[in-house]
Design a protein around this nucleic acid. Sequence first.
DNA 1: ACGCTTATGCCGGTGACTGGCACTATCTCT
DNA 2: AGAGATAGTGCCAGTCACCGGCATAAGCGT
Lengths: 214, 214
Amino acid sequence: MTDAGLTLRERKKLRTRHALVDEALRLFTEKGFAAATLDELVEAVEVSQRTFFRMFASKEDVALAPEKELWAAYSARVEAHPPGPSPLPDYVAALRAAVEEMADGWEARFLTSRALCDRTPALVAHSLRHCADVTDRVVALGLAPGQSELERRLLIELFLTAWRWALARWAEDGAPDRAALRSRMDDAFAALPDLAPLLSAAPRHEEARRGVHA
Amino acid sequence: MTDAGLTLRERKKLRTRHALVDEALRLFTEKGFAAATLDELVEAVEVSQRTFFRMFASKEDVALAPEKELWAAYSARVEAHPPGPSPLPDYVAALRAAVEEMADGWEARFLTSRALCDRTPALVAHSLRHCADVTDRVVALGLAPGQSELERRLLIELFLTAWRWALARWAEDGAPDRAALRSRMDDAFAALPDLAPLLSAAPRHEEARRGVHA
DNA sequence: ACGCTTATGCCGGTGACTGGCACTATCTCT
DNA sequence: AGAGATAGTGCCAGTCACCGGCATAAGCGT
């Protein structure tokens, strides 16, 4: 599946790319993201810095490679099947499918990347922005003329928050394999309908104004 | 209000801080965030780079100063009045109050900062992370033992998405003053209850699984 | 085997950020 | 008011991410 009809050049490139990701995750985990230098990384993989920067946009980029892979697959899914008027289930389905189509061993790299992210503010920032970029592209997809874009954004944010919650539970789990991730996703997404009653008690203007002058 | 019982040292420090923010916004807007160098900035304000970095954590930090100010005020409000079992109106009220207590001229700086942010990916990343940091601190506040943290996070994300929506509308508005911002906030937060019916149609497992094997 | 494309390496430069240390301005206490 | 404590500031030198340009080599189609 990895080398399906690829030319030798492309395969070589992919190989060094994977080597860079693996070594980066190892190195960053061992020494910390800030303390580890790119020189160490590229020397370990035996490529030049220039090559690194042609494959990755930044030091953060390589650390978040597994996550970007996932969102790329998700993006492709959503573009292939643009969501209908009730998009939430479609988003969820696309993400589930994306998780399933990741290569073998992806979950281990992803987990390492997440752990790194949790203790590295710079990585959090990049992760959030990438997610926001994907969201921006996805929101516009299959949006009927009369439909509200705000509504879409709200639903997507709920979906993302549930996903992040599932991730956090998964990471602190004893068995961080793909089945466990699926199960955490089930739990998190199942909680979404329970939110409805809390929204009908949404702020009316009188209450809000009272807060202003408090 | 600005110089309320502050020592001379503190007032001086605040003055250079404000000068740095103003000049930074001017410079970044004129030349672009990446193209403008810190040397230009500190030379214009006549301070050393070292001083700059004692006041701001990074180049991004100074560009997002108005936003950080707002979230600091918001944070303080929420900490002063921890939200009850239906936290959404409390969050909204806290943000409205925070907007009102900003100093004169804040909205102009904030708008400039937002415009800059919109065309500078690095600023988006930092902005999102800061917001996430605030969220993390706020979620735990006033959370009763039996209450679900996930539920809180979901509500806060809705709240934040509505806020960002209000900001975007405000920015493209003809009159970006504080009254207009209030009005946009009203509109955006009023849309939240409409989301409830869309949640009852949340994903069931069968639908989701179908997507997986598609 | 031959050009053509593409990836890579090397080199030098820029600019954000940091630690150390001396210096000066402000504060505080008597 | 003056002396010592307490910041805040400037200067300098260093590290490191990142990006041009150009030469080289490795893979590709004919």
